[in-house]
Design a protein around this nucleic acid. Structure first.
Ligand SMILES: [Mn+2]
Ligand SMILES: [Mn+2]
Ligand SMILES: [Mn+2]
Ligand SMILES: [Mn+2]
Lengths: 216, 216
DNA sequence: TAAAAAATTTAGATTTGTCTAAATATTAAA
DNA sequence: TTTAATATTTAGACAAATCTAAATTTTTTA
């Protein structure tokens, strides 16, 4: 059994390793809002428990056991986010903090019943895929909206930035999951993107476009 | 803000003080499954935070602030139990352990939305009253089934023992909340009670009868 | 009311997770 | 390829919550 803290380390290592493997001490420290020295201590402990492979100065990789543990936490996090939005009418920018706490509740029965109650959702309110109880993800293919060319069409199916200000901004612009969009123009001057949504024109910054995920 | 551990102490002091006020160190130690010395340490800390009034060797009492904190945890515990039974099809003997974890989740919005989602329940799956957000309980009056005389009738509205074996036993006997019963005989020999439920006779031990709560 | 028993507190350690400052290793630059 | 910069680890401390063993206080019993 892992502590709350150990679970958070595993989850963060899991997310970071998607970008860069093995994962570096400083990267973990930044995400955990702690100091590198504390991370080193924890890596030794997780290594002792065979949840990570850790080589001094070289970085850390999850073992199979560590990976499954991490994925299970991600599963719980995302299921709770769906619950909060679908059943308790939370906004998509309000769920993350609470899910950070709920993801540590231990009962397996609870998770499986929650999954069933929510009708086995495949994605969370931000379009992130929800792994099944064996840790398998349905593979969804996304493209960044910023990669689309003029006249290309697609549907908003995710976001790669989860901060409340960003999500609220999208909401205000009407850029929510499921919306169909078409790129009508890409402005030379600043790279901003002009979209057609419901036959209305809308200009968004390149920065925003980079964090909107599209499927065709 | 209190730690998970502090919250558990406050909740236990709250429950114990209903039986015996001020609450004694050893009583707390037993309920917390810890040692008296650890309790003394924590009482000093809670006293420091003005959550309890503590006099060395004399025992401890909750302050108004401590009491409200404790009641809020009880509120969350019971709401989550309702959720587990009503929405996730848990049995009444399966909910307590999970609720022990869920009761510490911090979001106020979550609690109020959950309350609404559950349609503002007044009692939990064991018949225990759920306080409102201000800490007020609807006052329900119970009598122990063991206090009823022959020919008296009533409805099962609660239990005063929450262990899984006891609850499963009641379930098997059909003695669930809402059932109407009548005492048809009290056996001299062992004090056991003969009931009429749905015109069927059922004999239960005095020990069981003591933990079933009746309203008329 | 003095001794014995029970309850409680203090003293001193331990574990977990954290920190700062100093030492060491790795990587990048000159 | 030596030096400088960056990344990481070690050493030593600390706060929270716990424990055991010993000391103290309160309560009960004789
Ligand atoms: Mn999230
Ligand atoms: Mn999410
Ligand atoms: Mn309970
Ligand atoms: Mn209950």
């Amino acid at each position: 059994m892992q502590s709350y803290t150990e679970e958070n380390y595993l989850k963060i290592i899991y997310h970071l390793s998607a970008v860069n493997n093995p994962v570096q001490t400083n990267a973990i420290a930044e995400r955990m809002q702690t100091k590198a020295a504390s991370v080193t201590d924890m890596l030794k402990k997780l290594s002792e428990k065979e949840l990570v492979d850790y080589v001094k100065y070289q970085g850390v990789t999850l073992t199979e056991k560590g990976k499954l543990t991490a994925i299970n936490i991600v599963r719980k996090h995302r299921l709770w986010e769906v619950f909060l939005v679908e059943k308790l009418n939370f906004k998509w920018d309000e769920v993350h903090e609470v899910a950070e706490e709920l993801e540590h509740i231990k009962s397996t029965l609870l998770v499986e019943r929650l999954d069933e109650f929510l009708d086995f959702p495949k994605v969370d309110p931000h379009g992130d895929p929800i792994p099944d109880q064996h840790g398998n993800f349905a593979d969804l293919s996304f493209i960044k909206l910023s990669k689309l060319k003029v006249n290309e069409k697609g549907t908003i199916t995710g976001v790669s930035e989860h901060s409340s200000p960003f999500l609220k901004h999208l909401e205000k612009l009407g850029l929510t999951l499921g919306k169909k969009i078409e790129v009508s123009e890409i402005i030379d001057f600043d790279g901003s993107v002009e979209l057609l949504i419901d036959s209305e024109k809308l200009n968004i910054s390149r920065e925003v476009a980079k964090h909107i995920l599209i499927s065709k």
